[in-house]
Nucleic acid binder design. Sequence first.
DNA 1: TCTCCATACC
DNA 2: CAGGTATGGAGAC
Length: 421
Amino acid sequence: MKPRIAQSHLTRVYERIERPLVPVVAQMETTGVRIDPEILRGQSNTLAQRMQKLETEIHALAGHPFNVGSTQQLGAVLFSEMGLPGGSKGKNGHYSTASDVLEPLAEQGHEIVSKVLDWRSVSKLKSTYTDALPQQISQKTGRVHTSFSLVGAATGRLSSTDPNLQNIPIRTEDGRAIRQAFVAEDGFTLLSVDYSQIEMRLAASVAGVEALIEGFREGLDIHALTASQVFGIPLKELPADKRRAAKAINFGIIYGISGFGLSKQIGISPGEANAFIRDYLDRFHELRDWMEATKEFAREHGYVETLFGRRIHITGIKEKNAARRAFAERQSINAPLQGTAADIMKRAMIRVGPALKDAKLNARLLLQVHDELVFEVPKKEIDATVEIVKNVMEGASAPAVTLRVPLVAEAKHAANWAEAH
DNA sequence: TCTCCATACC
DNA sequence: CAGGTATGGAGAC
């Protein structure tokens, strides 16, 4: 492989990032994370009762029992039997029961639909997390040992399997409660340190968006700043819905925006969404230039690169089919941002162990969740550890790459992962 | 065993 | 028809 790596100019990425990361990740897998099975068993019981009650109510509203977990049976009940509006059959001849189909129906007051959505979320939490995680506790160590893949994601991100510890719930209150079961060993505390808006900072930096660079340097609320500049409203008069819209556009930019996608995300028409995007790219015109240049690079080379030289191959960029070509173009925009963030995080992971050792600190790195590192830290060492981890993460792009914006890492610690995030 | 659907995360 | 992933259940084979 070595000559092929050299020919592709990937020697530095391989020798300075991927290879030294291997022992770091191996140590994380070996160490594992402590999970309290009693907490999860208690939650499983509560969730089972709620599922049972919802199921009974759903069957009563439907007029007969059926398998709520079967999308086929559910579609037949809601759209054929009960005649709810909006049912459309896909290519498999079945009705879609996806959440974006069911949510409007729930809002219109169709009680059975809101109960189905509740049932689904409870069912997901129970089967995937509260039931499954206790079974993954090692007899030998009493801890859960995930497996991280360094080649799982095309952009250079890690992935996590058996179990996936990178998708533990946090969004909803019930989901977040699962993190209470992720606990520190006695005498230790859990420390979570995450990058603040790293991909947006990278977009501002690589595209050279002067207004955003200035905003990040001054530590401003970047979504509010975006809204203020795009909609022409003074910062202190900004309504919450404008900030929300601006935040959605900022995310859209990172994903390689489409008017259709943005419209679906924030519930406006594609025409309005396109107007938003046009105004945004007029105001931050450097971003438009960068996006065009990046797509052109992908067309010419068939790949795009991160700031550290990692390549992400893009197929379909010259497709005649417009939808497939547009997909490849969005990948070309997203991959350098997501991939550079992944590179920076990997550099931080490689450096943090030696930095802690030099300071005679005994924290153990347990998990990486893309922009977050989770450590188990001896209680007495927490302040010194936070200081070192933050510094390593905030400095991880240097000296190989000089960014035009600061990287900011935020730390929180507690006895469990729910409180520490 | 495989695909599809739905849904969990960043 | 917004970028990147993993998992569980249903249902087909």
